[in-house]
Amino acid sequence: MFTFEGYFQSLADSLQICLLKAGGVRDQSNQLIFPIHTKGARDESFAKICDEDDPQVELDSGWNFQSADYFRHTTAELLGNCVLFADRIPSTVHIIDRLASVLLKDINVVCVAAQQSSGKGRSGNVWESPLGCAMFSFPLVIPLATRLGQALTFVQHLVATACVLAVRNTPGYQDVDLRIKWPNDILTSDKVKVGGILVTSSIMNQTAYCNVGVGFNISNTKPTICLNELIGKVSSTSNAFSIERFIGRTLSELEKLLREFAVSGETTFLPLYLKYWLHMNQQVNIRQVNENPEVKSQDFAGKIIGLDKFGFLLVRLESGELWSVQSDGNRFDMMANLLLLQRIS
């Protein structure tokens, strides 16, 4: 008979990372690492974890993951059907890295942390992880023969769009100022960062295994601005978002986008994505930076006109030539309207 407890115990043993006891994942010293929350609990030992009347686990951060709030705000049938919650860990991305390749196909874990000590950002940057920030990671398994498998760059664009829609598709929150910055950030119209996405992937047996990490400021007013501040600017009556609500809504929107992309690819998705991004017809200077310091950089002027069919940034130069710009290794400085391209000679 399948049980979550037995399954995660076997995972813990094989990965040598934790033990599962008494309603959660614990380390070798029996300290609670992950309370586990499951939708429609599959055995009695986990049913009490989903019970709205059951007291939540008290943790050092002072924030307790409210499973009832999370499951009330998600309509996803697959994504995030099992939640691993950690009070403080180095990174949720690291946990998914350890688990993703060995998880059963129908168990779609999302790992949530109250705090991270080594949150990961793009290009090796560290994502600051204060309390009040939604920090979560989850795996996506994508066959290469599918539409998305042929254009994996779109994964980060789909996730960014889902983050925006999680708020702006909620009645009463349509005017909240959230926009998309290429390739993987959520900003305000004033170019203040609210959140970011990190997607890493590996390919094995004609399948892409993606690890998606999201950091999004919900109630923390530092280091920049947070979602609930933005909500307060457009409505004095709308309720603040909880972290659980945001994560549940994001995974719900993402699951819908993934299903639509599987049918129609970028044709249906791009108009929605471009509706919320910051760059249409933006004039930019493009600088090709050579890794060889003896080779002089080259500068070009151009205009951003969208994304191509692979999800790369599409730029039209003054000469009329079209360039597709990959996100890997390249950087966009919006304050200077400067697109930096790494070129290897």
Rank of each mutant, 00 (worst) to 15 (best):
L274I: 09
H37S: 12
L131C: 08
Y276L: 07
P139Q: 04
D308H: 05
A262D: 08
S10Q: 11
I344P: 13
D308Q: 10
R98P: 06
S189G: 13
W63E: 14
N290R: 07
V155H: 00
D175W: 12
L230E: 01
V289T: 05
E77M: 13
L270T: 09
T161H: 01
C18F: 15
H37T: 08
T268H: 10
F34D: 03
E44A: 10
G329W: 07
K105A: 11
G6F: 14
V284F: 06
R88D: 05
V289C: 13
R343Q: 14
A240V: 15
G24Q: 03
Y7N: 04
L152Y: 13
T74D: 05
F4S: 12
P130G: 02
M334F: 15
Q115K: 13
K275F: 04
Y70R: 07
Y276P: 04
L187S: 02
N81E: 06
D299A: 11
D333H: 11
L272F: 14
P271F: 13
C226Q: 08
S345L: 13
K39W: 15
H37M: 13
Q174L: 09
G320T: 08
N220Y: 05
A113Q: 08
L103G: 08
S101T: 10
N30G: 11
N211K: 09
R316F: 02
T188G: 00
V263W: 00
L230I: 04
A151H: 01
A151L: 02
Y276E: 06
W277E: 07
L20K: 05
T3H: 10
N217W: 10
L274A: 15
K222R: 14
P139Y: 04
G121C: 05
M204P: 03
F154G: 00
L32N: 05
K181L: 13
K256M: 10
N81A: 11
Q116N: 04
F65N: 06
K233H: 11
M280D: 15
N220S: 14
S129I: 02
S123F: 15
N169E: 12
Q174D: 12
G196C: 05
G121Q: 04
N239Y: 09
K48I: 14
L103P: 05
P55L: 11
A68M: 06
V192N: 07
T221V: 12
L251V: 00
S91M: 03
T224P: 01
I180T: 04
G132P: 01
L339C: 00
L20R: 07
L338W: 01
T146V: 06
I218S: 03
K120W: 12
K181P: 03
N292T: 07
T267H: 15
L79D: 00
V289D: 08
R88Y: 13
D51C: 11
F241I: 09
R287V: 14
A100L: 14
V176I: 06
I231A: 00
C226L: 05
L317P: 02
N228F: 00
V141L: 03
V234A: 09
S242F: 02
G232Y: 02
P130H: 01
D69H: 14
Y209D: 09
A160T: 01
T250P: 03
S219D: 12
R147I: 07
S297I: 08
V295Y: 09
